[in-house]
Amino acid sequence: MIRILIVEDEKSISDLIKINLTDAGYSCFCAFDGNEAADMLESESFDLVLLDIMLPKINGYELMEYIRPMEIPVIFISAKSETYDKVRGLKLGAEDYLTKPFEIIELLARVETVLRRYNKNLSVLTEDDVVIDINSHTVKKNGELIPLTVKEFDLLLLLVQNKNIALFREKIFERVWHESYIGDSRTIDLHIQRLRKKLGWEKKIVAVYKIGYRLEG
């Protein structure tokens, strides 16, 4: 399982990130200051570090210098939104820089992208009795192959990776169809109906009024 270290001194933010990444299938660990993070990095192995900048004891920039020789990918997550700060973080070796406040769906997408870049992303996801193999692009329910179209597969993957999160129609359309949303929801609704029927998830994929859809776990 992919192991992610969350280095964030605000517990509410740390908990929010941990809950959502855990729901997405990652194994998460938390450090609340730079010293604690350095100790954990020295004694344990991680596949990705999510790193705040303004940390007690050792700040994120200083900790990045310590992490860099380990060749562990790092995503900075910080309230510092100036271009200078972003450039500094990237020049220190971070793979990405996400500014607070952020949407969980964007964080999950960036985590997935960085892990894929390092060939560390999860290739198999399980949700109840459904197994999704990303590499082979196949879906099985109770061991039986379920035929899905490319868009149905991409939509299912998006829902599973964002379980218990209400996804706006705009985000769904942009992530699955890779186009700007123009207000026509019939395409999304049709694909949702097909997924529900094929997987027997009529009550699991729920409509969220005036927002879009959510996969309940």
Rank of each mutant, 00 (worst) to 15 (best):
P73H: 10
I165A: 00
G60V: 03
L51F: 01
E144I: 08
I105T: 11
G143W: 06
D33E: 07
D52Y: 02
Q161K: 14
L5D: 06
L199E: 09
L215T: 03
F102G: 05
Y181M: 02
K203W: 10
V208G: 03
Q161C: 04
L158Y: 08
L48C: 01
D52N: 08
P69S: 10
L98E: 02
I6P: 02
K210T: 15
F32K: 06
S81F: 12
F102D: 06
N35V: 13
L190P: 01
T149Y: 01
N35F: 14
L41G: 05
I6F: 05
G25H: 02
D129T: 12
I77V: 15
I146M: 08
R117Y: 10
E112M: 05
E112H: 13
Y66A: 04
P147M: 08
I172N: 04
R186C: 06
R88W: 03
D52K: 00
L63G: 02
C30P: 00
D15W: 04
P56Q: 03
E44Y: 03
L190H: 12
S185W: 01
N164Q: 00
L98G: 00
I188G: 06
L21P: 05
H178A: 13
K91S: 15
S14G: 14
E44H: 04
V114C: 07
N119L: 00
K57Q: 11
I2D: 12
L190R: 11
N20E: 14
T22M: 14
V139H: 00
K57S: 09
K197L: 11
A79D: 03
C30A: 02
D52G: 04
I104Y: 07
A31S: 12
R194M: 04
N121T: 07
E112C: 09
D154R: 05
I53D: 05
L159C: 02
E216P: 00
E71P: 02
F46C: 12
F153K: 03
P147H: 11
A207K: 10
E152H: 02
F46Y: 14
E36V: 02
E152F: 03
K198A: 14
D133K: 09
S123E: 15
K18R: 14
E36N: 13
E36I: 06
L5H: 10
G93W: 06
W177M: 06
D47N: 12
D129V: 03
E42H: 10
K163Q: 07
S43K: 12
E8C: 01
R175H: 11
E95S: 13
P56T: 08
L125F: 08
Y84S: 15
T138G: 06
I53K: 01
K163I: 12
A38M: 12
K86M: 14
F76L: 04
I72A: 10
E106R: 11
K203R: 10
I13H: 13
W177F: 10
L155K: 00
I165Y: 07
A31F: 03
S123L: 10
L107F: 09
P73S: 03
K163E: 05
